[in-house]
């Protein structure tokens, strides 16, 4: 197992190097003078010269790349050109928001997707199966921003059931400690606020979770169908075990594996989807931040966000693979 992990880690190194070259190149090929982008229209020539010097824009390309690499490795991921706030600190204050949203979406996707898939698999080709397939199809086919707009309009503005923006009722003036509001409110003993945070989470989670929901429902359905026809399940059933027991003990246990894989594969999609979802729901997370950064041409922020998202994606995939290897010993030896 240890060797497997080491091998995977080594394999990630060229990817990281490629990524750093790509992102370095990205900032260089952007249109326009960085001076205009950073200092704006009131800039003075002196300030411009100082900036070029500071950013090392006059150095040879390879030296600039080495600078970029050393800065990045030492944790200096740049700062906003708009408000001078350092990337890393800002990222860390926003990341919990994205984590909570992503978890919310996953909980929704798993919580609804697995039961739906199981129900659909129970009577393949039946009316319920058709309905569920239809719903999951709709889920993958509707853009998150369209679904988000619709949810806000219906459940927020018309029915007034749920809040439409932000992570917590601003009037509560709650002081977060970890940034994960679900945990912070509980630790503060504010059950009312915990409920409020959950209520804020519902609509964005549904919007973001619709695609994974559809995929998970599908995979669950397919793997249940497959497993149901396996000999050991038939045997279990013929032994006279109750349907529910068969389901839980034999069918689902084996259907979990593909579901886990899909969840891992969805990590990248969720981070990407968060970009649009957070924008629609005025959610204080990394996604809305990066959209603001794009709109403000705040390229250092865009560049470093892509880098960190890619890192997260790689780590999540590694974890999923390791988990998978643990669950399924055959893989390790391949």
């Amino acid at each position: 197992m240890g060797r497997y992990i080491v091998r995977r880690l080594i394999a990630a190194i060229p990817v990281l190097i490629g990524l750093s070259i790509l992102l370095f190149a990205y900032i260089r090929i952007l249109p326009g003078d960085p001076c205009v982008a950073i200092l704006g229209q009131h800039r003075t020539p002196e300030a411009c010269a100082a900036l070029r010097e500071n950013l090392g824009l006059d150095l040879p390309l390879w030296e600039q790349y080495i600078r970029y690499l050393t800065n990045t490795l030492s944790g200096d991921l740049g700062a906003s050109v708009i408000n001078s706030q350092p990337f890393l600190a800002e990222f860390l204050t926003r990341f919990p928001g994205t984590v909570e949203l992503t978890i919310g979406a996953l909980v929704f996707a798993l919580g609804a997707g697995i039961p739906l898939g199981r129900i659909a698999a129970r009577k393949v080709g039946g009316r319920v199966d058709g309905l569920i397939t239809g719903v999951s199809l709709f889920g993958v086919s509707i853009p998150v921003f369209v679904l988000g707009l619709a949810l806000v309009a219906v459940f927020g503005v018309i029915l007034e059931w749920l809040p439409t923006q932000g992570r917590i009722d601003a009037r509560a003036r709650f002081d977060a400690t970890s940034g994960l509001l679900l945990i912070d409110t509980l630790f503060a003993g504010r059950l009312d606020l915990f409920v409020d945070v959950v209520r804020h989470l519902i609509l964005p989670s549904i919007a973001l979770g619709s695609i994974p929901l559809a995929i998970i429902a599908r995979i669950t359905r397919a793997s249940v169908i497959e497993v149901v026809n396996e000999d050991y399940v038939r045997t279990a059933r013929s032994k006279g075990l109750k349907e529910k027991t068969v389901d839980n003990r034999h069918v689902m246990r084996n259907a979990w594996l593909p579901v886990t894989t899909v969840v891992g594969l969805q990590a990248g999609g969720l981070l990407g989807g968060a970009v649009l979802t957070e924008t629609v729901f005025v959610w204080n997370g990394v996604g809305r931040w990066v959209v603001d950064a794009i709109q403000n041409r705040d390229y250092p922020i865009v560049q470093s966000t892509i880098l960190v998202f890619a890192l997260i994606f790689l780590v999540v995939n590694l974890l999923v693979d390791i988990g998978y290897a643990l669950l399924n010993p055959k893989i390790r030896y391949q």
């Binding site: 707009l149 806000v152 309009a153 927020g156 503005v157 007034e160 809040p163 439409t164 923006q165 932000g166 009722d169 601003a170 924008t279 629609v280 005025v282 603001d292 709109q295």
Partner: peptide, 15 residues
């Protein structure tokens, strides 16, 4: 709240 629509939604919902 950069989104114009969300400013009005927020007013309507009391947020």
């Amino acid at each position: 709240v950069a989104e114009e629509a969300q400013r009005v939604n927020g007013l309507a919902t009391g947020e």
